[in-house]
Design a binder for these strands. Structure first.
Lengths: 214, 214
DNA sequence: GTCTATAGAGGGATAGAC
DNA sequence: GTCTATCCCTCTATAGAC
């Protein structure tokens, strides 16, 4: 790949991270990439196409680089810790923030919507297979709809990323609260067999069961 | 309040909802409000000030109108149902979507950041006092940091609102999954006294305890 | 492939008539 | 309070020199 293309892809991610979707324009991206503005159109055709290319590449790279850590998580608490680390690491690299910005811009731009859905699906798939593995032997699985839960977690994560922008201390508090709560699932998983059977029966009597995936 | 001010405040919310933060300009707002563009500056000074005024008013109105329903919720499941209804009702009225857009724009605009923080705090305060009431007698309160949890819930809600924009079916699935999961907390709350004591002891041995509010 | 220059639209904001 | 007209800026995208 040419040097200019590389610089433009990186500059686009940096611009989305630092200035938000509303502040991302051809001129600003070109300045960030230290490249002539006209080259955006020569190499990518339009600003929208450049954003699309940059986001797809960045999301694929990030998900792949985090895959071993997803695979290594052995509890919901660890998955959450992974999420928190990802959140903090990315404050400089910034791909989750970027995804949040693209998601916000998706409301009035069908192209951004497609980009956002694609990138988000990569993360959701990863979360889903992790949850699948973690919860297979848990009594909690009886009331958990893994597909839906993975989507909820991804969406929540995006929300926390945006919230961080206006209240960093509050966002830290939110993460800490979730971490405390994850202790609950560990307790449930560690129940002795008798306790598990009792819980399972209790769940069956109360819950309508997980939603059927279509 | 003058008719023009009223139309501009409403037109601003409608514009943020329909066109996103990146598509919200003085000209578009004025067209939506059916008012001359120059009147924005006469009445509000700047577009940023208008957005700020509109968002603060809308958030205050919304939170107030939902307050009785927050007070009426008697379980986490009901709080979640309330959230889901709010989500669906607002697809037309649109104030949570608006908040998400302002939050996204906050990244490169300090004024929007202040607006977003103020509006979000109104919702967080409401969620916090509801959680406080709901969880006072629950053994779960031992591992729950209510302040942080309220922030996490509000942020997650914003994320779901944005996710709805690119994958409505996925967002519905996410809500359904959370609803199923809320059954767990009800089970824990309904434990017989002996079971509660056992759970409580188990929590004490595992958890570092809730974070200290500062 | 890279540059300058510019077209043409839309942006915030103001002046001044009414 | 409301309007028109306008200034000056930034935006995307292209034309054309190199």
């Amino acid at each position: 790949m040419s040097d200019t293309r590389r610089k433009l892809l990186d500059g686009t991610i940096a611009t989305l991270r630092d200035r938000g979707i509303a502040g991302t324009s051809a001129r600003v991206i070109a300045a960030s990439a230290a490249v002539n503005q006209a080259l955006i159109f020569y190499h990518f055709g339009s600003v929208g196409d450049l954003i699309d290319a940059a986001c797809r590449e960045a999301a694929a790279d990030q998900v792949q680089s985090y895959r071993p850590r997803f695979r290594a998580a052995v509890s919901l608490g660890e998955l959450l810790t992974l999420g928190q680390e990802l959140h903090e690491t990315q404050r400089s690299a910034g791909n989750v923030t970027v995804l949040a910005q693209v998601l916000a811009g998706a409301r009035h731009d069908p192209q951004l919507a497609a980009t956002a859905k694609h990138a988000l699906t990569l993360w959701i798939t990863e979360i889903e297979s992790t949850l699948d593995r973690l919860m297979r032997d848990s009594p909690v699985a009886e009331v958990a709809d893994i597909q839906g839960l993975a989507r909820a977690i991804a969406a929540a994560f995006i929300g926390l990323e945006l919230y961080e922008g206006v209240d960093p201390a509050g966002a830290r508090g939110a993460f800490a609260a979730l971490q405390h709560l994850s202790v609950l699932t560990e307790i449930l998983d560690d129940l002795p067999p008798a306790g598990r059977r009792a819980l399972r029966g209790r769940i069956r009597r109360t819950s309508p069961g997980p939603a059927q995936p279509k």
